[in-house]
Amino acid sequence: MKSVLPVLTVTLTLIALWYAAVVPMNAQWERDQATRGGYTLTNAELISRTMTQSRPRLPAPHQVVGELWASTWVEERHGRRGWWNTGSLSNRSLVYHGWVTLSATFLGFVIGTGLGVALAVGIVYNRAMDASVMPWAIASQTIPIIALAPMIIVVLNSVGISGLLPKAVIAAYLSFFPVVVGMVKGLRAPDAMQLDQMKTWNASGVQGFLKLRLPSSMPYFFASMKIGIAAALVGTIVGELPVQQGGLGVRLLSGSYFGQTLQIWAALFAAAILAATLVGVVGLIQRVTLRRMGLAP
């Protein structure tokens, strides 16, 4: 709680810096307009105009918030194609595109985490898997596997798999490796003394797993899930670029095609809000679970 004031100050400073940057970034265009139109601008006019352009180089914070509001609530409530009027989400609203991205992210994350945990258990209990697979799992963290994304999308599309699944595949393999590495570390967290103690109680392998290894891996599990879900979101967004069938990635790309800066910024913020929510939800589950297990205060 002690950090509320500093965090608030830093956040406000960042927003102030943003506002301060808006004027010089957008001023040139206004001046050009003025010269072309043959009128002169006072400084006050110049500043107020830089904050209200429709295609600014750098939109002001309130413009981004306005665009976010317009492309969510206003679009769905009042828009011709909005949910209020048609009963289905408008394809011009960020609610729709956010949902497309979220569903693929979530599906991929669940698949990737499940497979990752399974592989981690295999690695911990099988020496051959440890020696052969683990180095690759670690090495794969150092390479830009996201470069595979466009190919996976196009190839899966060409064999008739399209829509949610290809993006989920990318999200899955991006969240897969952090989970494997984190879970292996977690399942190996019990020290020799604790493992020996299990042995003195003549505990079976399954008991040792359920009562010792699995509980001690939980902090690692949640830490890697946080990384995994953020990576899954990035994977989905990048996976949306080659085949444009909706999603925040598409909003980013089409915004940059048509110079719709406000659309880009709104999509970027929607993605950021989504990421923060997802990581926040995992963090919340982590807090509750660890507290119940007595691993956190």
Partner: peptide, 8 residues
Amino acid sequence: ALPIIGTA
């Protein structure tokens, strides 16, 4: 933790 790559 945010998808900063979206600033591209």
